[in-house]
């Protein structure tokens, strides 16, 4: 199996493609973050939102709300291929 076959195999079987949106202060941890597009990235199958946050070097204590496909989830919930994840800090100003 050549290297290209391996890549194709990995992309089909072991990798999830995710869209990630970051809110306010969490954007500071991802240089060049584009708020319109968000982030498109791949994570190993079976990754949790927490693992995704660690991968992005986001401070876990600052993540207060995790939304996956428009609904609130816990940080240790597992993700699925194609998920759209949004991380929020506390948004409490008036």
């Amino acid at each position: 199996m050549g290297i290209y076959d391996l890549a194709a195999f990995a992309s089909k079987e072991f990798v999830m493609h995710l869209t990630v949106k970051l809110s306010t202060t969490l954007r500071d941890h991802v240089p060049g973050y584009n708020p319109e597009a968000g982030l498109q990235l791949a994570m190993p199958e079976g990754s949790s939102a927490e693992q995704l946050a660690r991968h992005l070097n986001l401070p876990l204590q600052d993540i207060k709300i995790v939304m996956v496909n428009g609904r609130q989830r816990k940080v240790d919930d597992l993700l699925r291929d194609g998920d759209r994840i949004a991380f929020f800090p506390a948004v409490g100003g008036g």
Binding site: S23, T24, T25, V91, G92, G93, G94
Partner: peptide, 9 residues
């Protein structure tokens, strides 16, 4: 209602 930077809920 809540706000932070350029965002809000």
């Amino acid at each position: 209602g809540s706000v932070l930077r350029d965002e809000g809920f």
